[in-house]
């Protein structure tokens, strides 16, 4: 009888650095989800009017616990963006003539758009 080696269903991702990175990437979704819920909460608050917005949303964000969570979320969200752009060239390679556009160029273009978009949003949000 052929021998089947056991595979751990719960710790496999610790066996290899690439597996671990992958698992970390998957778990960024927790914070993406949390932030999406926060946005939803904000939308609900706006829909409930001026007072509710400040009292039940914006002021809640300033609590120390919330601040810590927001910091972590923001960092993870940035990590998600970088990890996502890194693999985009694999999912959507672009062929120009015979040759393929180097992955770095595609990822680079993403970064340029990302930075420009972010600056525009920051400007209109009144950050500067």
């Amino acid at each position: 009888m052929a021998y089947v080696r056991p595979v751990s269903k719960t710790t496999w991702y610790l066996k290899d650095r690439n597996y671990t990175i992958h698992m970390i990437n998957e778990l960024t979704s927790v914070f993406i989800g949390l932030y999406a819920l926060l946005l939803l909460w904000g939308i609900g608050a706006v829909a409930s009017g001026d007072k509710a917005y400040y009292q039940f949303f914006l002021e809640c964000l300033t609590s120390p616990g919330m601040l810590v969570l927001l910091w972590v979320t923001t960092i993870v969200i940035f990590y998600h963006a970088i990890a996502w752009f890194k693999v985009t060239p694999k999912a959507m390679p672009i062929q120009k003539g015979e040759a393929f556009v180097p992955g770095g160029v595609i990822a680079g273009a993403h970064y340029v758009i990302w930075v420009l978009f972010s600056l525009v949003v920051l400007y209109f949000a009144g950050v500067f």
């Binding site: 932030y35 927001l70 963006a81 996502w84 990302w114 950050v127």
Partner: peptide
């Protein structure tokens, strides 16, 4: 969603963070 959040979420999170401070 992954693509959209990669582009949009960082700046929104940043603004939220600034506002929260």
């Amino acid at each position: 969603g992954g693509t959209l959040t990669a582009f949009v979420f960082p700046v929104l999170a940043l603004i939220t963070l600034i506002a929260a401070h």
